[in-house]
Design a protein around this nucleic acid. Sequence first.
DNA 1: CTGCCTGCAAACTCTTTGCACGAAT
DNA 2: ATTCGTGCAAAGAGTTTGCAGGCAG
Lengths: 153, 153
Amino acid sequence: MSNDAARAKFQSYLGTKGLRVTNQRLAIFEAAFAQKEHFTAEELLEHARAIDDSVSRATVYRTLPIMIESALLREVDIGKNLKYYLPNQGNNTQVAQVICMDCDKIFEISAPFMEWYGATVSSKLGLTPATQRLQVNAHCDALKATGTCKHRG
Amino acid sequence: MSNDAARAKFQSYLGTKGLRVTNQRLAIFEAAFAQKEHFTAEELLEHARAIDDSVSRATVYRTLPIMIESALLREVDIGKNLKYYLPNQGNNTQVAQVICMDCDKIFEISAPFMEWYGATVSSKLGLTPATQRLQVNAHCDALKATGTCKHRG
DNA sequence: CTGCCTGCAAACTCTTTGCACGAAT
DNA sequence: ATTCGTGCAAAGAGTTTGCAGGCAG
């Protein structure tokens, strides 16, 4: 999905929900979709303020759930008391994260079998799966060998 | 592992690390191993205080990492800004969680394939897996049908 | 105009930490 | 006696919220 298409979807979503298209919300959208890596709420605030310096932290936190509900953004919780976000480029919701614990880089890996697994296990418990998360925390081989984590940067 | 064996392991671990066996640490241990379900730090404090009312919140938070390092306790992060803990009855570290979003009950499911998956994916990235998490968030079928979530309690 | 949206700052939740006292070895 | 452990309360991090004023529709 191009950024233009994503922006159109965002505005359309706001309209559908009776929410207003404000400069702050647009700035937050633009800042989010300019990112190529995972980002935090604080980083998003910083980038959004570069576009519109009237954006406040509160509005970032109030806008993030809207963008997640509309499937424009994906929330990635890697168990660090700090949430990461990522523009949802494709429609691949079945994604696992491999996290380099040495440089904190997060790799997104397609893991389609997760859906099957979740459905199988849940049905035995009388449950219907909603969302799934698979996360692998790993150490960098290169760091141990050469002292440099090649994933960094 | 019986509670007696676990207690022995705890005391042994403390000794090995040059840590002291205090009444507070023992009370926290007993409180943890009396639980049959997942519990939070706050719940652990409450139960530990029922055994030894001198136990403080700080000591609970300082003792939890010790019990986790010694593999007596397992930390379960289900992405709620609140960590859950569980006595580690067996040695099965490859466990997935299925969470009923209606009643917040957590089911622990063995998922041995996770280890294979983590190793396969990580090696392609030049990484060595350390820990893995698989989590399925699900809704209760019975709740939708009858208005009662049968997993509760 | 109307009412949703905003920034600000304070509140909130969970967890960690500095300090002086207290207890285990 | 030492040294580690402890409770208390304050600090800390990330996020949420009440309020009075502002702007989209």
